[in-house]
């Protein structure tokens, strides 16, 4: 009896340890975040997308997605949000216009038990479709132009990303960019039916209010713009068609897929990230409300553990330094 019970404990332990041992050649969340944070640690800041600005406003739903998702946010009406514009990179004082990627993150709180975090980037697709290749891509980026050319040559799956990169023209404003979910998710309706979608935020504004070139050009432009007007984006969902692989974020879906504009995102105010609430949020895209579910996209699935590791590090730094070093400059 006792022996059987002991065996019952030992077996799962051995299985887990074997699984752990097999993992050694795979990149861990810690290794990934180490690579992102680089040599110089900016205590209290995100290990990726460190430079940013908090924004607030509301999402006004037109109700057109309510038939496809039971998430309360899609019923007709307004839901407030806390958001964050940022640029890619580990440096909270990096020059805005040098960053290859710009981002928008949002946090919706429909109720204490229904919350949703979104973190989106300017490219519509990733260059690779699994976190281990993504790690190598980052290594190549750090190693220099030759390494990155070699990387793309070895990764034909990057074709759609490279095509986007070739036609993409960065603008002089956060408010005139498109932000993409990149990863696909499932909408779940009242009857439990699932449909794979991607989404994007498409700008109403089409020209910058300043043409500054300095280090904080994008941040200043947004502040000046918000002093005069609300910044509006259309939230557009794209449904996967037959043959689209929702688990591959590197592959662009054809243009003729069904698109639904579900409402307007109205950004009305900004706060510096040193004092705004967005700085303390982990915009983990796997914090989802009822009515939205994750796909098995390996990039999407890798994000939760990496964001948690980065969040753990900066949370500890905030606690021990009393929030010092969390200033933007």
């Amino acid at each position: 009896m006792k022996k059987r019970l002991i065996a019952m404990l030992i077996v799962p332990l051995t299985v887990s340890l074997t699984a752990l041992a097999q993992k050694v050649d795979k990149v861990t969340a810690q290794q990934f975040v180490d690579l992102q944070q680089g040599e110089r640690v900016y205590a209290g800041f995100r290990r990726a997308h460190a430079k940013g600005i908090c924004v607030t406003g509301e999402f006004v739903s037109n109700g057109r997605l309510a038939a496809f998702s039971r998430a309360t946010i899609f019923k007709p009406g307004a839901t407030p949000f806390t958001g964050r514009f940022s640029i890619a990179g580990n440096n909270p004082t990096a020059p805005d216009l040098k960053a290859p990627v710009r981002s928008l993150a949002l946090s919706f709180v429909s109720s204490a038990s229904q919350q949703w975090r979104l973190a989106m980037n300017t490219p519509p697709v990733t260059a690779v479709s699994d976190p281990h290749s993504f790690y190598q891509q980052l290594q190549a980026l750090k190693a220099g132009p030759e390494a990155i050319t070699a990387f793309f040559r070895a990764h034909p799956e990057s074709a759609d990303f490279l095509a986007w990169k070739a036609r993409y023209q960065p603008t002089a404003s956060f408010a005139t960019e498109q932000y993409h979910s990149i990863n696909a998710f499932y909408l779940v309706d009242e009857s439990g039916q699932r449909r794979a979608v991607r989404w994007s935020f498409e700008p109403r504004a089409n020209k910058p209010v300043t043409q500054a070139q300095h280090k904080d050009a994008l941040h200043d432009e947004l502040q000046q713009r918000l002093a005069q007007q609300t910044v509006v984006f259309d939230w557009v969902f794209t449904f996967a068609g037959a043959g689209d692989d929702e688990n591959n974020p590197a592959k662009q879906w054809p243009d003729n897929r069904q698109r639904v504009v579900v409402g307007e995102l109205e950004i009305s105010a900004w706060q510096p990230q040193s004092s705004g609430h967005c700085h303390v949020i982990n915009f983990d895209p796997l914090v989802l409300p009822d009515g939205i579910e994750p796909t098995r996209d390996p990039i999407l699935r890798a994000r939760s553990a990496a964001y948690a590791e980065s969040y753990r590090r900066r949370a500890w730094e905030r606690l021990t330094a009393g929030g010092e070093g969390a200033k933007n400059d």
């Binding site: 887990s16 699984a19 752990l20 993992k23 795979k26 990149v27 861990t28 969340a29 810690q30 990934f32 976190p131 281990h132 098995r296 390996p298 699935r301 890798a302 553990a305 990496a306 948690a308 590791e309």
Partner: peptide
């Protein structure tokens, strides 16, 4: 396991 893994 879960705080380390990046697997699906």
């Amino acid at each position: 396991l879960m705080v380390r893994s990046l697997e699906p």
